[in-house]
Nucleic acid binder design. Sequence first.
DNA 1: ATTGCTATTGCAAATCGTTTGCAACTGGTG
DNA 2: CACCAGTTGCAAACGATTTGCAATAGCAAT
Lengths: 148, 148
Amino acid sequence: MKKHTHSDRPQLPELTDRLRGKSRRITGQREAILGVLRHHPHPMSSKEVQRSLGSEDCDLATIYRSLHLLENIGMVKRFDLGDGIARYELMGTDDDGHHHHLICRRCAEVVEIDDCFPRELEEEIARRNGYSGVTHRLEFFGLCPRCR
Amino acid sequence: MKKHTHSDRPQLPELTDRLRGKSRRITGQREAILGVLRHHPHPMSSKEVQRSLGSEDCDLATIYRSLHLLENIGMVKRFDLGDGIARYELMGTDDDGHHHHLICRRCAEVVEIDDCFPRELEEEIARRNGYSGVTHRLEFFGLCPRCR
DNA sequence: ATTGCTATTGCAAATCGTTTGCAACTGGTG
DNA sequence: CACCAGTTGCAAACGATTTGCAATAGCAAT
C-alpha cells in the first residue's frame, strides 16, 4: 500500500470556515462527501463517491453539485484520467494539489507521481509562443506490476 | 498562421494501400473525411469534421466509425484536450505522431508543441513503480497572445 | 425555541458526446 | 455483371453530467 506524499488532509472544521461567509451552507451531504474523500487517497468519480457514502447516501446530482462547489472553493481538485469520467481528489491544506498519476492500462490502479514537467521548459514553451499563465495536464499510463 | 512541424501529410493513395488487403473498403465518406483532416493541421472533433465536409456531408455515426477505423490502422491519432470531446489529427507518414498541444483557455486556439517529457525521467518513474510500457498524455493550457 | 428567508436537495427530465442495431446499399473480386 | 461482406444512414440506446422545480433544511435574527 503506497503512502501518499501529500500534506495532511483537511479536517471538517475547515469546510466550515471556507463556506461560512459565502452564503453557503454546511449540509450533511457535503460533510459526508468530504468525509469519503478524506478516506480515499486517490481520484474518485461521482459514482465511486456515492458507493462509498453507505448510509449517508445522497442523490447523484447532489454529489455532482457538491464536487463542483468544493472544486470552486479549492478544496478538491479535478483530474481527467482519460476515460471520460471526472475524478476528484481532496487537496492538502498547504500544497496547491499539483501532481500527476500513473495509471495501469489494465486494472486502472492509480499511483501518485510527484515528478513534474520541468518548469524552465514550460516557461520556454510559453515564451516561444507568446502565451501567458501556462500550466499543464500530465498523466502516465502503463502496466502495473501485477498486470504484466 | 503557424506552419506545423510534422512530416508531410499522407496522400490518399496511402489510404488505399493501408485498407486494401484488410478486407476494408475505400469509400467516398472515408476519402472525404481524410481529405478534411489533411487540410486541418489541428485536432478536430467529429462535429468539426462534419461541418468541414460541406457537400460531401455524411452521417455523424459514420464519422465516428471512420475515425475509429483510421485510428486503429494508425492513420490518425486521438487527442484528449480535456473538455470531454475526442479530437483526431492526421498522422505524418514517418513519425509516430507523438507530440503535444498548447491550448488557449479562452479561444481554444491550438499550437503544436514538439517538446516532450524527458524520456529518462519517464523511465525512472516506470522503474520506481514497477510499471512497464509507460507512456504519457501531456497538454499545456494558457492564454494566447491575442486573448491576454 | 420559533420564524423566515434562501441555499440546497431529491427526483425526473433534459443534454451531450458517443455507440449500436438493423435494413438498405455498395465496393471490388471473381 | 453478379454476389457477398463490409458500410452507411437513421433512429434508438447509452452513460456521464446538468438542470428545472417543488419540497426541505441551514442558520441568522427574533
